[in-house]
Nucleic acid binder design. Structure first.
Lengths: 116, 116
DNA sequence: TATCTATATTAATAATAATCAATATAGAGA
DNA sequence: TCTCTATATTGATTATTATTAATATAGATA
């Protein structure tokens, strides 16, 4: 069963967690490496990583002492799917705006104000 | 200043709020109309709507007694922008998968197993 | 003006989340 | 085996959130 949108959106609602994901764009990283840029304790970062893992946004491996964390960007496809109908709406509105802008421009031209 | 990703993702992390947005795809609605499908009190729905409004996801008007709520889907473009680099990653991975699948298929053909 | 309807606000409660310090675990190396 | 390093877990605290009942407001109508 895939992680729910509840879990995914909730995971993304925190700036520390989004910053962790951003770090992972550059490739997998250790918990300590991920924690370094933050002024937060190691257990706090571990908790954030667990929330990201539960949401399916990252996975964890094992290499000796380390538990390397890596991005699982496919999980974000769930958002992409959810957002679809809304994107259709806002893109439609943008098209309407363009049409109106074009009409205004046409009028402008008729009035001889076609400089620019 | 645009609402932050914190506010937007947080607003979307709640299933009641996502259901309210879904209702609004069909057009603007009153608070009472939005509340009807839920087994929740009217003040609870008002609170949810305020959170959506603060995130820029809906706007409110006035018509006599009513405060019609309407969708502001453009706010979701912020997510679309944020998700961009991650989408690039997962689409790239999908391409790799296709390439591998194609290669396997090629091999299959060479072995004479080209029925499918 | 009195009252009805729609919605917002307040106050209170219970559940959840972020955080830390302290401690536990697990693997590597001396 | 002892110890060091990396990470996880526990317990406690504080802040935030979801929720309700009760009440307030604001517009419409009798």
């Amino acid at each position: 069963m895939l992680p729910s949108l509840d879990l995914i959106f909730n995971a993304l609602a925190n700036p520390t967690r989004r910053a962790i994901l951003a770090q992972l764009i550059g490739g997998e990283a250790s918990v300590g490496g991920l924690a370094a840029p933050f002024d937060l304790s190691q257990p706090t970062i571990s908790t954030h990583i667990k929330i990201l893992e539960t949401a399916g946004l990252v996975t964890r491996g094992r290499q000796a002492n380390l538990r390397p964390v890596r991005l699982h960007p496919e999980a974000l496809a769930a958002i992409d799917g959810w957002i679809g109908p809304y994107r259709a709406l806002w893109e439609h509105r943008l098209e309407q705006l363009e049409i109106i802008a074009d009409e205004l421009h046409q009028k402008d031209n008729k009035n001889g104000h076609d400089l620019d």
